[in-house]
Simulated scan of single mutants.
Amino acid sequence: MTKTAWVFPGQGSQAIGMGVDLLEIPNAKAKFEQAEQILGWSVVEICQSKEDKLSHTLYTQPCLYVVESILADLMRERGQQPDLVAGHSLGEYVALYAAGVFDFEAGLCLVKERSQLMDSAAGGMMAALIGFDRKQLEEKIQQTADVVVANDNSSTQVVISGTPEAVETVLSQVKTKRAVKLNVSGAFHSPLMATAAAEFEKVLESVTFANAKVPVLSNVEPLPAVEAGVLKQRLSQQITGSVRWREIMAQLPVEGISEVVEIGPGKVLTGLIKRACPNLTLKNISSLGELPTS
């Protein structure tokens, strides 16, 4: 029997126009309306904004959560179920929703708070490195204060995060095929987010988590867990902790997964998984037309 993992992308996968086709579905339209009441602004309008408001952290994260959650709901309505879930950074919130850990409203309230705190962060820098010597990179990071690997995406792609001076130092000392400075306001997934994480912790404490219906691979600890307390603790560490996606991918075949479905815009995660785990069957669900018919 095929074991399937659902994976959910995070910030960077958003696309203008995403989710608009879902308005044809009454249940989806109701979710968009519910989201507008919680957020105070329209996800549908932001996703169609010609000013590209969608690329701003404040809007990106809630929009991704809403669209991906609706797609997950529609997958379920068509008789699909995951055996395991995981999400990249913001995507972990959708994974927890899909696993029944909290309801749509609770998850969106968490994401709203998270996006506001991360959007208001300042003074940091993030940069993506593609094609590098991992040992050399790890050595330079150990020798440089105030910089960490924020996203360990694959054996050949990472994102580093820290103070501008520290990030520039590492970039100048590590040979890489390509390095790209990211257009973000702060040093996400690094200890420099400690103040934001402490504020977020207060909100997180107010939300009740249930045990997951299927195992979740968390960003900060890529081992399967279903216990509510464990999942909440792992999520509380996520704002300052590294996204260990390379290890999550390696865990998929260990858990007997043979099929992975990326639910959300783009094909970033399946692209990474294709190179890391070439024997897995990969599918993408990013629009109404890609949903299974039954």
Rank of each mutant, 00 (worst) to 15 (best):
Q233E: 13
M249V: 05
Q143L: 09
Q173H: 15
T270W: 06
G271D: 02
D133I: 10
A194P: 08
G10K: 02
F102W: 08
D152Y: 07
C277Q: 15
I248S: 06
T169Q: 12
D146V: 06
V147N: 01
E255N: 14
Q116P: 05
S13M: 08
A28E: 10
A128M: 13
A210G: 08
Q157E: 11
Y59H: 14
L192G: 00
F132M: 15
A145G: 06
G10P: 03
K177Y: 14
K53C: 07
A166H: 06
Q251Y: 01
S206N: 12
V101F: 02
R78F: 04
V174N: 05
L272G: 00
G241H: 02
A128W: 04
Q37M: 13
L252H: 04
V147R: 02
R275T: 15
S258L: 03
E199S: 15
A128V: 12
L252M: 11
M1Q: 10
A196H: 01
Q157T: 13
T144H: 10
M75W: 13
V167W: 00
T293K: 02
A166I: 06
L231A: 03
F188N: 00
V203H: 11
T208L: 15
A72T: 07
N27K: 14
S115M: 01
E51W: 10
T57D: 08
P253K: 01
G124I: 01
W6L: 03
S258M: 11
G107T: 00
Q142H: 15
V180M: 12
G229Q: 12
E205F: 14
V268E: 11
L171W: 07
L182P: 05
V203M: 10
E51A: 15
S115C: 05
V44S: 02
E51Y: 06
S42H: 05
S115H: 01
T144R: 06
K283G: 02
A250Q: 13
A187K: 00
S55G: 10
A210T: 09
P164W: 07
V43D: 05
A276M: 05
S161T: 04
N151R: 04
Q34G: 04
V158R: 04
S69I: 04
L204P: 03
F209M: 07
S185G: 14
D152H: 13
E36C: 05
D152R: 03
F209A: 04
E259M: 09
V184P: 03
N27V: 15
P278L: 13
G123Y: 04
E45P: 06
S49P: 06
S242W: 00
R234N: 14
T4E: 09
E165D: 11
A35Q: 05
K50F: 09
E138V: 07
E139G: 09
V184W: 04
S115I: 01
S161F: 03
